[in-house]
Design a protein around this nucleic acid. Structure first.
Length: 864
RNA sequence: GCCCGGGUGGCGGAAUGGUAUACGCAACAGACUUAAAAUCUGUGGUUCGUAAGGACGUGUGGGUUCGAGUCCCACCCCGGGCACCA
């Protein structure tokens, strides 16, 4: 039995009216039964892969923002299918994460239970919208069959030396009893819950994303993304070119002070230096008489939270160390200050200050009365300082007269020759803090062993990193031993309590039987340490890693799993990776412009370098849908009570109306308010479509004819509509596609006879936007099979050419009238017509015609 | 402060440098109806004028152009991102 044969047996409903509550579930069931949206990995048709950002299945259910983006991609998926593509359009669940864990803490039920309930609800809501997902490819990041490969990718990063542990100050939230990433801290408070946070040192897993800073910038050149998003990623990576310069310290025993500067050309203007309060040389550079002042300043700086530090950003503070350094270009004696406007985490934690040409240095110099020397002259001779614009170098013997970029190049070369400096590139990008002290995340497939046991593992394992990852705890060095790929997935164990240990470790630290083990260093097999040690040298004592991975981990590679979701031997087969390639279009919110999209690109590039994936960038083309605001023009939120629930809209107007309205609201990328009355308009439009096809009894509209023809004007409009809807759909400009269809319907309504073929084409044009009603009407007009299999209408270019057109008369650029003329009319004839036109002629009376401008097919402008 | 995006009727918005306000909502008037709903028809920037018609109109002020919502310059306002990164 053929695929479409099965479909033919499926009948339409027998509704007399547009009863969407009957029609929509009816067709959804048929689609589901026939697996109408299955993507075929073996197809010979051209492929099209269209990807949504998969949702976090929250307890609140689908937010109206989800169906906005999802409707857009669904329309495109259906459009591409109609145009003959093998379309991959999948969905899944980004289901690990903090809210489920907090719910578990509150209720004591397993986060998996709550998560599964939420998924059931999300799935129901998404199906009610008629989205054409291939449900055989659904993924769930919390499924061990899925996170097995998340863990596997982590192991590849680990083996490549891209994962390490480090004790570092991290945000600690006493309320949540957990560590938060920088991006989860907003204005000194936790993003979730809004609780205060503080700094604390903890052992953390960190991914070396900085090793990929350069490729992550370079790759942006090759992708079709919104410019603003590219710029945001560039700014986040923050590449800056400059030089490291060594300043000899006056106290030669202390050696050199290394600074990073982007403007080595201004070295002659350096009048003081600044080191960060955390700089290792602070103590040795502080002279005895300054000791108390420096100590006090350091204490103050350390106790400031980042919030205070940025709040006080306007006021510069600092203290003199009492020591001096020697400027390598002119031997000048330069005082060294300590100030918190220099941060330890960037560059070398020390700067040369050039107050004449740096705004912050200038502010500081004015405040502390330090000298200011101009070394770049403004092109326009302006005297004002600080000056950061272009110009020629002055007061710099050997470089005067050069533009500053020239001087920069020359001075870097000179410093390098003398061995006191070199060109360098710095990035703002920090390594990625990759661990959380939480339960509801992927466990790390890592155990900690002693130095001696690790040495034994080195002898029998070939998959260990070149440099061991180790960590000193209570004076003992622990070594991170990866579990072999073969024992994955490492299943998240059951716990008694979902509360964090409260000491910075996750609830996993309380599961002793799981935590403390004998491990086989060769196979990764484990038995609880409470049991006797199995026989053989390969069994060693180990403690499991208790951190779990952040929510980003699962979302970093899900678009690859869709290609081959059941594969038990690889994250996806090489054939699937090659056939589907990367998504042709990725649609999601701009709030992921930096983090998710940067992290996923990083993993993809690592997988590319490992030969796992065949291309170096994961997302060729990216589009951000805008935010839908509440009726009141403010962002929707529960507390404001302006949230729109898709379920309510569907039960009142139907999914087709909701889809159409979401797309008709305005440009997809725009932020726009919800208008409850606006949906009436598109709903009326759908009812009008229904009435043009079927009469009140539900039988075919008697005006529909096999042989009749449209009037010439409507015929032309019909072909224009095909053209416009096709182009607009391709460009994701659905609002104008819909208005064009409305214009066509208004015209068809006035036609005495409706050719059947025209009505069928209209349904085809509308089908991606409103799939249920068009399936129903397609069947009711006597067509067999799904409208989705019926192809896409094409327009007749000859029909677009009018025989007469309207030419506008302008006199001196002002609109004065218009005239219907045949297509081939000449300029002379039009000028003549203008003088005869009762509306135009008065404006031409008594004034000689100086010139006329004729825009073919549009207008003629007469200058008098 | 820096980097983006945007300001068009009562509202959402449309407009390859060429008739500004398409399409939809809301409003008003009319038709159908015992009535209502539904549906259909029509009106609709401001201002002067009985009208025909004129003047002015896309945040503000300049400019380029035969012609500017659209291009250029300056400014104002709104939204987003970054924020002592040397």
């Amino acid at each position: 039995m053929s695929h479409s044969g099965g479909f033919n047996e499926m009948a339409a409903t027998n509704c007399k009216d547009y009863e969407f509550l009957t029609i929509e579930p009816h067709w959804q069931t048929i689609w589901e039964k026939t697996k109408a949206f299955r993507a075929d990995n073996g197809a010979t048709k051209p492929k099209y892969y269209i990807l949504d950002m998969f949702p976090y299945p929250s307890g609140a259910g689908l937010h109206i923002g989800h169906p906005e983006g999802y409707t857009a991609t669904d329309i495109l998926a259906r459009f591409k299918r109609a145009r003959g593509f093998n379309v991959l359009h999948p969905i899944g669940w980004d289901a690990f994460g903090l809210p489920a864990e907090q719910h578990a803490v509150k209720t004591g039920t397993h986060p998996a239970t709550n998560t599964q309930n939420n998924i059931v609800n999300f799935r129901r809501q998404i199906k009610a919208l008629g989205f054409s997902y291939d449900w055989d490819r659904e993924v769930d990041t919390t499924d061990p069959k899925y996170y097995r490969w998340t863990q596997w990718i982590f192991l590849q990063l680990f083996k490549k030396g891209l994962a390490y542990v480090d004790e570092r100050p991290v945000w600690w939230c006493p309320e949540l009893k957990t560590v938060l990433a920088n991006e989860e801290v907003v204005d000194g408070k936790s993003e979730v819950g809004g609780f205060p946070v503080e700094r604390r040192n903890l052992r953390q897993w960190v991914l070396r994303i900085t090793a990929y800073a350069e490729p992550l910038i370079d790759g942006l050149k090759d992708v079709d993304w919104p410019d603003s998003t590219k710029r945001m990623q560039e700014a986040w990576i923050g590449r800056s070119e400059g030089a490291e310069v060594l300043f000899k310290l006056e106290n030669a025993a202390l050696g050199d002070l290394k600074v990073f500067t982007t403007r080595p050309d201004t070295l002659f203007g350096c009048t003081y230096m600044v080191i960060a309060p955390e700089h290792p040389l602070v103590d040795s550079l502080t002279v005895p008489e300054q000791r108390d002042a420096v100590k006090a300043y350091r204490f103050k700086a350390a106790s400031k939270s980042d919030l205070e530090r940025t709040d006080l950003a306007k006021d510069k503070s600092g203290v003199f160390s009492g020591s001096y350094a020697i400027n390598p270009v002119n031997g000048a004696r330069v005082p060294i200050w300590i100030a918190d406007y220099v941060i330890m985490g960037y560059g070398t934690g020390a700067i040369m200050a050039v107050p004449a040409h740096d705004v912050r240095d200038h502010e500081f110099a004015v405040q502390f009365n330090l000298p200011i020397i101009r070394v770049v002259a403004a092109n326009d001779g302006a005297e004002e300082l600080p000056y950061t614009g272009d110009g020629k170098v002055v007061n710099s013997p050997g470089y005067d007269g050069l533009t500053w970029p020239e001087a920069k190049k020359k001075i870097i070369a000179e410093l390098a020759t003398r061995g006191v400096g070199k060109g360098t590139i710095n990035y703002k990008l920090r390594d990625w803090l990759f661990s959380r002290q939480r339960y509801w995340g992927e466990p790390f497939p890592i155990v900690w062993v002693s130095e001696a046991d690790y040495a034994r593992a080195v002898a029998v394992r070939s998959d260990l990193p070149a440099q061991p990852v180790k960590f000193i705890e209570n004076g003992v060095t622990q070594y991170a031993l990866p579990l072999p790929d073969a024992v994955l997935p490492l299943i998240l164990p059951e716990v008694q309590s979902y509360l964090p240990s409260g000491l910075g470790e996750s609830p996993l630290a309380n599961v002793t039987e799981w935590l403390e083990i004998w491990v086989n260093i060769q196979t990764g097999a484990a038995v609880p340490a409470s049991q006797p040690r199995p026989a053989g040298d390969v069994w060693v004592r180990a403690r499991r890693e208790t951190n779990t991975m952040p929510q980003w981990a699962g979302s970093c590679w899900y678009y690859l799993r869709y290609l081959d979701p059941q594969n038990a031997g690889a994250l996806a087969s090489p054939e699937a990776l090659k056939y589907w390639d990367v998504p042709d279009l990725y649609v999601g919110g701009a709030e992921h412009a930096v983090l998710h999209l940067l992290y996923a690109r990083f993993w993809h590039k690592v997988l590319f370098d490992l030969g796992v994936v065949p291309q170096s960038e994961p997302f060729k083309k990216l589009f951000h849908q805008g935010i839908i605001l509440g009726e009141d023009g403010v962002k929707m939120s529960k507390s404001r009570g302006n949230v729109v629930n898709p379920d309510d809209i569907i039960s009142k107007y139907g999914a087709d109306s909701l889809r159409l309205y979401l797309m008709f609201l305005g440009p997809l990328e725009a932020m726009k308010p919800w208008n409850p009355q606006g949906i009436e308009g598109v709903h009326r439009f759908l009812r009008k479509v229904w009435r043009e096809c079927l009469n009140e009894e539900g039988a075919i509209n008697p005006r529909i004819s096999e042989t009749g023809a449209l009037s010439a004007d409507t015929e032309k409009l019909f072909h224009e509509t095909i053209k416009k809807v096709t182009e607009n759909t391709e460009d994701l400009r659905f609002n104008t596609a819909i208005s064009q269809l409305m214009i066509l319907l208004n015209a068809l309504q006035k036609e005495p006879v409706l050719p059947r073929s025209v009505m069928l084409d209209v349904l085809k044009l509308l089908a991606p936007l409103a799939p249920h009603i068009t399936e129903e009407l397609w069947a009711r007009l006597g067509q067999s099979g799904s409208i989705m299999a019926a192809g896409w209408p094409s327009f007749d270019a000859a029909k677009l050419v009018a025989t007469t057109l309207t030419i506008v008369f302008q006199v001196n650029g002002k609109h004065r009238g218009d005239v219907q003329v045949p297509v081939g009319i000449t300029e002379e004839e039009l000028v003549k017509l203008a003088y005869e036109n009762p509306k135009v002629a008065p404006h031409l009376q008594g004034k000689p015609l100086k010139r006329s401008i004729f825009v073919k097919g549009k207008l003629i402008n007469l200058l008098v």
